[in-house]
Amino acid sequence: EQTEQPQQESTSASSEDTSSSEASSGSSVEVNDHLKQIAQRESGGDITAINPSSGAAGKYQFLQSTWDSVAPAEYVGQSPASAPESVQDAAAVELYNTAGASQWVTA
């Protein structure tokens, strides 16, 4: 199921230690393993995903009000799905670090 990110066939302890700090495929932002799982459950990793029922959008399925609280100023008021992956990742990391995983139903 993790076809977006190639898995290394290494058994050394150091590869496990660094796995949580790897940047996601299209982003330079370090995203922890839990957020990577959340993104997979929320959108399958699709940065342009939009939920037609709730309006949640982007890789992490932000509601607009939540997005506006963590997005950089130039992206406030815009759909999260229109922001680059690195911006979505940074916003998700900020939300996760300040409010925790409870912000996502799938967490």
Rank of each mutant, 00 (worst) to 15 (best):
G55W: 10
T11V: 06
D33K: 14
R41L: 13
G100I: 04
Q37E: 13
A23K: 08
G55S: 04
G44Y: 09
Q61M: 12
S25N: 09
A81G: 03
S19D: 14
S82A: 15
H34W: 02
T106G: 02
T66N: 09
D33T: 15
N51K: 13
T11M: 07
S69F: 08
Q88Y: 06
S20Q: 11
S69L: 06
Q5C: 06
S43C: 07
P6L: 11
V105L: 00
S14T: 08
S79V: 03
V105E: 12
S15K: 13
T106K: 12
E4L: 14
Q61H: 14
A101C: 07
P84L: 08
I50Q: 08
A56V: 08
V29F: 11
E22N: 10
A49T: 04
E9N: 14
W67V: 03
A73G: 06
D68E: 07
S24G: 00
I38Y: 08
N51L: 04
G26E: 14
P80R: 01
D89Q: 06
A73D: 15
S10T: 15
A56R: 07
G26S: 13
P72E: 15
T3N: 07
S24D: 09
L35T: 01
E74Y: 00
D17S: 13
F62V: 00
E94V: 02
E4Y: 12
A101Q: 11
D17H: 07
S27P: 04
V70N: 05
D33L: 14
E4N: 10
G44F: 08
G58Y: 03
W104Y: 04
S54K: 10
Q61R: 11
Y60D: 01
W104H: 10
E1G: 15
A71I: 03
S69E: 13
P80L: 05
A73Q: 11
S12P: 00
A13R: 13
A13K: 13
S19L: 12
G55Y: 10
S12F: 05
E9C: 03
S19Y: 07
S82M: 11
Q5I: 13
G55P: 08
G26V: 00
S86P: 03
G45C: 09
S19A: 14
Q61L: 02
L95I: 00
A99S: 15
V70K: 00
K36S: 09
A23W: 01
E42M: 10
A90H: 06
I38L: 08
A81C: 09
Q103E: 14
V87I: 15
F62M: 05
Y75L: 06
V70M: 06
A99M: 07
G55E: 07
N32H: 10
A56F: 04
Y60T: 03
